[in-house]
């Protein structure tokens, strides 16, 4: 029997309106699109407002934490972007944001993304009792070195270097293919959720 829950009916109607885009662009699809964006922006605005009150307004007004005025000024300066004349001022707060973010990221990046990765690859060279693990490790080490040789620009890719670079290119293509396959899986899954809502929650077909 079909659902009698109003929320499920609204959900089903929005899903059908959204799916109508597969046929062609239409007003129903655009309605769902704008509704989604509107709700998301409305919700974010409320959360940001709450954050500003608890993290900026309250400490400044009730706890006299005047240092917070500096980030407030920097934040307000971003709005100068709306003015063609004073838009350049917005580069200052942006510079602070990028600078701070980069500094925080770099601190751990060298160990996390370079040193630990190199050490882990070197350790794969250690012979293990399990034959399959050795084959796997050998492949990882070889493909890692070959991929790096692909980015050797100071010498022409000929002979052994050319072969290694070619293996490197195939390795990268396989990696990208894997990533795309998983990304596809990620796009397929929400569709399954929509169909489940329509078929199971709304139409009760099972």
């Amino acid at each position: 029997m079909i659902s009698t829950d109003v929320a499920i009916w609204i959900q089903a109607a929005l899903i059908l309106m959204w799916l109508s885009q597969l046929y062609k662009q239409n007003i129903f699809y655009r309605f769902t699109e704008y509704t989604f964006i509107g709700v998301a922006v409305g919700h974010s605005t409320v959360l940001v407002y709450k954050n500003v009150v608890s993290m900026v307004y309250t400490p400044i007004v009730f706890k006299a934490d005047f240092l917070l005025i500096i980030p407030v000024i920097l934040g307000l300066l971003i709005w100068t972007r709306l003015s063609p004349k004073y838009g350049w001022v917005s580069r200052w707060p942006m510079a602070v944001i990028v600078g701070v973010s980069a500094a925080i990221a770099v601190r751990g990046a060298i160990k996390t993304q370079i040193y630990d990765q190199i050490i882990a690859t070197i350790q794969l060279g250690v012979v293990r009792p399990d034959i399959l693990s050795n084959v796997n490790n050998f492949l990882i080490v070889v493909t890692a070195i070959c991929t790096l040789t692909y980015f050797v620009y100071f010498k022409e890719h000929k002979g052994a270097l050319g072969t290694a670079a070619k293996i490197g290119r195939i390795t990268m293509m396989a990696t990208f293919g894997n990533t795309i396959a998983w990304a596809f899986a990620g796009r397929l899954n929400p569709l399954i959720a929509l169909l489940q809502t329509l078929l199971l929650d709304w139409l009760h077909l099972r």
Binding site: I104, A105, G108, T112, T175, N178, T179, W182, N189
Partner: peptide, 22 residues
Amino acid sequence: LRQYKTPYGIDCGWVGSSGMVG
């Protein structure tokens, strides 16, 4: 990893979307 594993040595794990596997 940059903010918890490397500086503090805390065990870390991920719950992610499918596209993150690679």
